[in-house]
Design a protein around this nucleic acid. Sequence first.
RNA 1: UGCCGGAUGGUGUAAUGGUAGCACAACAGAUUCUGGAUCUGUUUGUCUAGGUUCGAAUCCUAGUCUGGCAACCA
Length: 556
Amino acid sequence: MDNPASDFVRDIVAADTASGKHELIVTHFTPEPNGCRHIGHGKSICLNFSIALENKGRCHLRFDDTNPATEETEYVEAIKNDVRWLGFDWGEHLHYASDYFEPLYGYAVELIKRDKAYVCTLDSEQFKEYRGVPTRPGKESPSRNRPIEESLDLFERMKNGEFDEGQYVVRAKIDMNSPNLHMRDPVLYRIRKMAHHRTGDKWCIYPMYDFTHCLSDSIEGITHSICTLEFEVHRPLYDWILDSLEVYHPQQIEFARLNLTYTVMSKRRLLELVQGGLVSGWDDPRMPTLAGLRRRGYTPSAIREFCARVGVTKVNSLTDIALLEFCIREELNRTAPRAMAVLEPLKLIIDNYPEDQVDELDGINNPEDPAMGTRKVPFTRELFIEQDDFRAEPPPKFHRLSPGREVRLRYGYIIKCVGHDTDEAGRVTAVHCTYDPATRGGTAPDGRKIKGTIHWVSAVQSAEVEVRLYDRLFTREKLDDLEAGDDFKNYLNPDSLKTVKARVEAWLIQAGQGSRYQFERKGYFCVDPVDSTDGKPVFNQIVPLRDSWARLNKPQ
RNA sequence: UGCCGGAUGGUGUAAUGGUAGCACAACAGAUUCUGGAUCUGUUUGUCUAGGUUCGAAUCCUAGUCUGGCAACCA
């Protein structure tokens, strides 16, 4: 990092450090363990952990597990794994809101004692009716003036399981006329006769988010409670609870969540894709989930770089997924070893090359990093080249192989096309060439310029592997502005996955799971960690190389 | 039609009363044994209307557009 990041959140933190308001900066990431984390959460993880790191503070990982109906332990491990994978460490500070159920109960009792909360008898139907609507004030619950002692007694009996679900709730006593719905005597505790993933059946009352979150922050000594914009309207309640209890008061700061073009980020939609079988699972390499990106081959550092580049503001925005692709290309261009792989093979026969001869040519492993050395690439009479690299009738500006023309085989020889075979349907089945023995290694002694260089593999000394080519999951850039009744699934890209049998340099079948390569002229690929087996790797395309030839031919 | 936010190129973001800058994208050229990478250049922007000021993206007034909020979810 040459330039430390700066944004309005970091400005606040810096000001609070400078003024001496805080000695130690404490931030947090507080997921609910009820679903899969996506790159939007990644932005939040990076923001919170990075701010802590930059200030030599700490960042807590706290599971906001106050709703036993929706939360599961399996997500806890998955989320811990995602955070660690991104490269962050919460140290000693793994917490659970459920760790605070006891003190939280005490705080609720205290609030009732201070006449700032009461036990309410309204059922959820009546509750809605009494709450009113944004444009109309609500009205006070008949329970509002229940004597403190009576509320205290009822609350204790709620805890003891004497009542049914929904029979009673604890509500804050704030203001039924508030223009902010969240301040109209919000529910603090409800009865849920349900086992919790950590506390079992110890409790049958569970605190609500608004009550839990601010007090957990307070208990943990969080200095800056960073969350997304939709919690902005909750901030008055966050402040009210802490002020009413006169406890340590962290500052809640809201920022805009990440949105990406050509994908969806809401839990509901992601779930729909998974449950509908439209993707192979939460970790489908086309998914914007951290598990999907990881399996696709994205590196944690590229995702961190991306999160740093998108910035932090309060503006609702839609970030071009091209920026994410740029970040992974930039990194992999520096680090990924090169290899030759022919994705859609076409037989090429060097007519004047001896049948049984093998020439070991030198391939450069990474032109961006000479320290990565060279490797031997076997050259034989029969090769495979890319179908796209031959045209019987070349379009303008095509500088690959076509009848009568010369092209260079990468690291090999300059060859000249002398003919091609076709089947009954007129499809090209093989291309015939002659090679120029004086051009071994690719340079012409007479200095003649060869515009095109194509990649290839030996037909006999190469391996067949499965390669999965991915494209954007959706054909539509923006999926949040659909007309009513229009389903986002109508815009799924039918070509988002294409599986091919490719021919690759033989050594690649030893490639370890998760290893990444640049297939020259094609893109960056990663050995799929799920479907690969020993000696039988499956390659996921992480991202294609930029392709100005393809762009040139794309209809505007 | 209530409350809380937000409006800077195609996209994401800087500039906190003093030259509207950066990145991605797009386009053009140079270079290249990857139509990659690299290098150079170009196009495109302060929501509107008034006002304050020598000077406004920035301050004031009015308007326009836009996001969020009405789970005993988080």
